[in-house]
Simulated scan of single mutants.
Amino acid sequence: MILADYHMHSSNSGDSETPMEEMTLSSIKMGLKEICFTEHMDMDFPLLPGLPPDPFLLDVEAYKNELTYYKEKFADKINIKFGIEIGMQEQVASENTALIKTHDFDFVIASLHLLDHNDPYYGEFWGGKKVEDVLRHYFEETLKNIKLFSDFDVLGHLDYIARYVPEGDHTYSYERFKDIIDEILKYLADSGKGLDLNSNALKSFSYGNSNPSPEAIARFRELGGKIITFGSDAHTPEGVASAFDQMRDIALNAGFTEYYTFEKRVPTAHNL
């Protein structure tokens, strides 16, 4: 059993309304021994329908104060870590780096949620575009951004964009984009950075696969990748640790025997 969920959100993130206490109580009920809140910080987020301006600007101090309260309250039941999910964009790389340097996070996820300052979550994003070109551009931008913003521990949901391709489209596969994905994986492995093994799409999206795909996870191992973390990407209590049994099998089949937790950015290995 995986005992640590290292990718979850509460109402401190712009896309969750769930109080931190509810997420924590759900984690305890699920039998987890450790969790890491990784609240969203996406600077320079575009103005989109139905969203307020800057919906993912995180009040880091308020977030930390709340987390510290629950960390102490539930200290005899679960270990709560102070994490963040940084939204990468080229124009805010220096601001992201400065933010990380000025706070004592336990763990940092770097994720690419936007492409050319647009959100692939919205159906109109895909209008008039060739899916294959969009996917390749997304991976190219991922490689560029992990080099521009290097102060992170794991790359979040590597093939995240595959969740949002138009319904019924089957363009994406690891093999089809192997050349550019391998560049990303090799850079991560050579830099001592890890992968967020994200189970969200296994239960919540018609895409129905892990992010990254099992093939990409196996390739990371082949290229010397060592660090993996397990994350449900939960925004509600029922999502905590979702599909972790499937994610564990994927990791074992890829050749991994350990997963990692973090404290003050220092990784600790645990047996799978």
Rank of each mutant, 00 (worst) to 15 (best):
A216K: 01
I250S: 00
K226E: 15
F220I: 00
F220T: 00
D159R: 10
E183I: 11
S213R: 00
G192W: 06
R248Q: 12
D169H: 08
F230T: 10
I161K: 03
T229M: 09
D249T: 14
G156C: 10
P212T: 07
I227F: 07
S232W: 02
G192E: 09
D182Q: 11
L158A: 05
L158H: 01
I250P: 00
R219K: 11
H235L: 11
A251H: 00
A201L: 10
Y187Q: 08
Y172A: 02
D249V: 14
P214E: 06
D182G: 08
E215S: 09
Y187S: 11
L188A: 07
P214Y: 03
V240K: 06
T171P: 00
L202N: 06
A251C: 07
Y187D: 07
E175I: 12
R221M: 05
T236S: 07
H170S: 13
S206W: 08
L185I: 04
I180Q: 01
G194D: 15
D159T: 08
Q246H: 10
P212G: 01
V240A: 08
E215N: 03
F244T: 08
N253D: 11
I181M: 11
D233P: 04
A243S: 15
G168V: 05
A189I: 06
L202H: 03
A243E: 15
S206G: 09
D182I: 06
I184H: 08
P166I: 13
D196P: 06
N211F: 13
G192H: 05
A243D: 14
K226G: 01
A241M: 06
N211S: 15
S199F: 02
E183W: 07
K186Y: 14
P237I: 15
A254T: 02
S213W: 04
R219Y: 03
I227Y: 10
K186E: 13
P214G: 05
Y187R: 08
Y164M: 04
K186C: 12
F230Y: 14
G239K: 08
Q246S: 14
G168S: 07
S199Y: 01
S173V: 12
D245A: 15
S232C: 05
D196G: 02
L188G: 04
D249P: 00
R163G: 03
E222C: 03
D196S: 07
G194K: 10
F205R: 14
D169C: 04
S173I: 11
S210P: 02
G239D: 04
D159S: 07
S173E: 10
D182S: 11
Y164G: 00
A218Y: 04
I181F: 07
R219G: 02
I161N: 05
I180C: 02
F230M: 13
G156T: 08
I180R: 01
K203M: 12
G225Q: 04
Y207S: 12
